[in-house]
Design a protein around this nucleic acid. Structure first.
Length: 827
RNA sequence: GCCGGAGUGGCGGAAUUGGCAGACGCAAGGGACUUAAAAUCCCUCGUCAGCAAUGGCGUACCGGUUCGAGUCCGGUCUCCGGCACCA
């Protein structure tokens, strides 16, 4: 019976058993409590990395733990399968993106199964299949109907050599990541989703995200970026035209000494007809290095004091935020200050710190930098003497009364541009007809299939531009000749609703003909109870998903607004002080690790080395330690298997602690304490590292226990059975094998999570810590339930304590029940 | 610059509500077993003083509150993350 621990034998065996028994299938019983456990699905890049192992190990422990607790668990997995790398592989190696992607998926799926992850593969989704992406198109059509999708012209990163648009992430230091050409800004017609319609709701609901890390909620809030301010019209002198500016600092309006327009502002080209001149500023638009300005020759009138101030075009003014025009108050804004210094413009102080309020004169000459803090207004007409915050309120009122502007709320959040000039993505389902214009593809004609028969050159933009049979179509409206949209969707669209797709049984996604049963499936499983993934998605993916969930809600499909009840952002896997990455050459290959130690060891180490939300420092020696521990457990069971089996299982669960002498009694107590500790550690923010540490303590104590008689063996068996149950979610294969040796037929995956008995878990005696003036002076074992006076007398009987007290008088006695006594003595 | 987070042994990390600092693991040193090695087992392991019992010091730094502070408050330093010309 004394076999050595061989994960290479044990792990495939149990993976086959689980598959055969279909242990991981989703059971939907609406009367049961449900738990939807979801890990972020991977991009099928080729192989999984340690970050995946960590992410999925965390999710698998939670899923298995919840199943043992009697929940119906939904634990699905899928593939975020559209995207650039597949297209690059096509260009580089001549393999079709579809083939490349599906081969990767197939390999990575075997890797995930080798890790023993308990996914219900019946619900697998792959976003590059027509069955999946048709719903991207369907949602897009629905959003068009609701005016949530629209087309507009905007500036994008354009590589003139590859003739394609680049995502921001693909622009490295103003150069194209592929060909190193200088990327230029180009105005293009693009499709947008109107996420800004939900800006206020998305922001307000942030406060309800109590199951999310505060940091992530804050990042979402900052990204949405709400601010309160005013818009004010400045009339252009000598023209029947005015410029509308936005500011949050209307308290500084009297300090405006010039006005700046974005080079992309519609008025810019009218005020500066010389395009060459305007181009000198435009070329530096949005670049943080230097401030470039151009005087337009025009002036406008500050409506607060009727002052004439010059109008500039300035490269640092963003067209995308506010109105694309600002008033410049160099005394109280560092950017305006820098600009004023460069172009020799006046600087006028209108806010002074509180302590300088008494009769201060404006002191523009002294300023070395802008004073951006709050203060008291000076030189501001009827508002002088008012404190900043109060002045902002009053001036906003004044502006509205005089009808020179209005109060506004602004958001940094912009509409989501989803057009990509790439092949490997969801075709945007619209056609362009010469007579009807933009026509959506009717629902019945979906999906618009991405053609497979295209050529990849890497130049000349998307291969779809050359696919005449795809492009040429007929207008659904008039039947005339029409051209298809050749842009595809941003892949973030795919991942914005995949968690809803998993709720359909058998992977049979269908939003358009929801009957009662299908509806109730969605209702039953949504929202996700626990979502787990990397913090790098803290803004985009999570925000898009929150947006999409609301759109789906407003289509009447679900009645939840928030997709993810609880969010766990796991830390990175670090080795030698840096994130594991191919370029750093510090990767550990999961395949190698599984071959050498098995997946149980790999899982255990990645869960033990750090709490999930923190970065994990990889240590090869630490992995050895995890492997050693599993060997200890293995030997603990195998070396004692006959004695364990002969202890009656019916009795071992109901041992009366009073019948057991020490040290068996102590082991029994430890077992109950460990059940409690592991359970509460998992419940408390998934602190698996301390849960595993507690199990190691129990294993150590069990190993050193030497049973003397039958009662002792009952205690031993009880400890062993609980070690296996508690360890099962972490290392399912090894514990299944040992469980089958100890307990026969029933699989551990069908067993319940153990419960502890509070009374047995309690110590007979407590250790009393004795302090004198807060310093540790002694420890004593005392019976539970002594009175305060008895505790004091006991403490005072200790020789070391008496010595520490000496002849001094006791002034005060502080007793913490069951823990500590502090004797406070005089000097 | 703004907004977060974190600083605990040689290392990863524990310490649940203000109550024994360093659980558990790794590394290191010593020993047992062995012809030998691996594996395994036992002991030591914050720091200073001491043969020892024991005592002093110690959770980035300075100060405060408290009978008592890794934990709370004020200030300083360092590191990490996010955003960044958002008017």
């Amino acid at each position: 019976m004394e076999e050595t621990y061989d994960p290479g034998k044990v792990e495939p065996k149990w993976q086959a058993v689980w598959k055969e028994k279909n242990s991981n299938r989703t059971i939907t019983q609406t009367a049961h409590k449900k738990f939807y456990c979801l890990e972020m699905f991977p991009y099928p890049s080729g192989k999984i990395h340690m970050g995946h192992v960590r992410n999925y190990a965390i999710g698998d422990v939670i899923a298995r733990y919840k199943r043992m607790q009697g929940y119906d668990v939904l634990h699905p997995m899928g593939w975020d399968a559209f995207g650039m790398p597949a297209e690059n592989a096509a260009i580089k190696h001549g393999v079709h993106p579809s083939q490349w992607t599906h081969e990767n998926i197939s390999y990575m799926k075997t890797q995930l199964n080798k890790l023993g992850l308990s996914y219900d593969w019946d619900r697998e989704v792959t976003t590059c299949t027509p069955e999946y992406y048709r719903w991207n198109q369907w949602f897009f059509i629905k959003m068009l109907e609701k005016d949530l999708a629209y087309r507009k012209s905007s500036y994008v990163n354009w590589c003139p050599s590859c003739t394609t648009v680049l995502a921001n992430e693909q622009v490295i230091d103003t150069q194209c990541w592929r060909c190193d050409s200088i990327v230029v800004q180009k105005e293009l017609e693009q499709w947008f989703l109107r996420i800004t319609r939900y800006a206020e709701e998305l922001l307000a609901a942030c406060d309800g995200l109590t199951g999310w890390p505060e940091k992530v909620v804050l990042m979402q809030k900052n990204w949405i970026g709400k601010s309160y301010g005013v818009e004010v019209d400045f009339r252009i002198d000598g023209m029947d035209e005015s410029i509308r500016i936005f500011t949050t600092r209307q308290d500084t309006l009297f300090g405006a000494t010039f006005l700046c327009l974005s080079p992309n502002h519609p008025l810019a080209s009218r005020l500066v007809p010389d395009t060459a001149e305007l181009e000198t500023v435009t070329a530096h638009y949005g670049k943080a290095d230097e401030k470039i300005g151009l005087f337009t020759g025009h002036y406008c009138i500050n409506p607060m004091n009727n002052e004439k101030i010059p109008v500039y075009i300035a490269n640092f003014v963003l067209m995308e935020y506010g109105t694309g025009a600002i008033m410049s108050v160099p005394a109280h804004d560092q950017r305006d200050f820098d600009f004023a210094k460069k172009y020799n413009l006046p600087i006028r102080t209108v806010i002074v710190p509180e302590q300088e309020r008494s009769g201060s004169e404006p002191r523009s000459s002294e300023l070395h930098e802008a004073y951006e803090d709050e203060g008291v207004l000076v030189g501001s007409g009827m508002f002088s003497g008012t404190e900043s915050a109060e002045a902002r309120r009053k001036i906003a009122e004044f502006i509205e009364e005089k009808k020179i502007g209005k109060k506004v709320v602004n958001y940094k959040l912009r509409d989501w541009g989803i057009s990509r000039q790439r092949y490997w993505g969801t075709p945007i389902p619209v056609v362009y007809c010469n007579s009807c214009g933009i026509v959506p593809v009717p629902e019945k004609d979906l999906p618009v299939i991405l053609p497979e028969d295209v050529t990849f050159t890497g130049t000349g933009g998307s291969p779809l531009l050359e696919a005449e049979s795809f492009i040429k179509t007929t207008c659904p409206s008039c039947g005339g000749a029409a051209r298809r949209e050749t842009d595809t969707m941003d892949t973030f669209v795919d991942s914005s609703w995949y968690f809803i797709a998993y709720c359909f049984s058998n992977g049979d996604i269908d939003f358009s003909s929801l009957n009662g049963e299908r509806h109730s499936e969605l209702k039953h499983w949504m929202p996700v109870d626990q979502y787990i993934g990397g913090v790098e998605h803290a803004v985009l993916h999570l925000l898009y998903s929150r947006f999409f969930t609301r759109v789906v809600r407003d289509l009447g499909i679900i009645d939840y607004s928030e997709p993810f009840q609880n969010l766990l952002t796991q830390g990175m896997v670090i080795k030698d002080g840096a994130k594991m990455s191919k370029s750093k050459g510090n990767v550990v290959d999961p395949d190698y690790l599984i071959d050498k130690y098995g997946s149980d060891t790999s899982r255990l180490f990645s869960l033990f080395a750090a709490p999930p939300e923190k970065d994990l420092d990889w240590s090869d020696k630490g992995v050895e330690g995890a492997y050693r521990f599993l060997n200890r457990v293995w030997n603990l069971v195998c070396k004692n298997i006959n004695e364990i089996k002969s202890a009656d299982p019916a009795e071992s669960g109901v041992i009366n602690p009073l019948d057991i002498p020490e040290p068996g009694r102590s082991l029994l107590r430890k077992t109950h304490q460990t059940i409690k500790k592991v359970t509460t550690d998992i419940e408390r923010e998934y602190h698996f590292n301390t849960a595993i540490a507690a199990l190691m303590e129990l294993v150590n104590q069990t190993v050193s226990f030497e049973p003397q008689d039958k009662k002792d063996w009952l205690v031993f068996r009880f400890a062993v059975e609980n070690i296996l149950r508690l360890l099962f979610p972490f290392t399912p294969h090894m514990t299944e094998e040992l469980w089958s040796l100890v307990n026969g037929q029933k699989s551990l995956s069908e067993e319940a999570w153990p419960v502890w008995d509070e009374e047995t878990a309690k110590m007979d005696e407590i250790e009393l810590v004795i302090q004198v003036n807060g310093k540790l002076r002694g420890k004593l074992m005392i019976p539970r339930g002594l009175s305060d006076e008895e505790i004091k007398q006991t403490a005072m009987s200790d020789a070391k304590v008496l010595e520490a007290i000496g002849s001094k008088a006791i002034r005060k006695v502080i007793i913490v029940k069951g823990k500590l006594i502090n004797l406070v003595i005089g000097e």
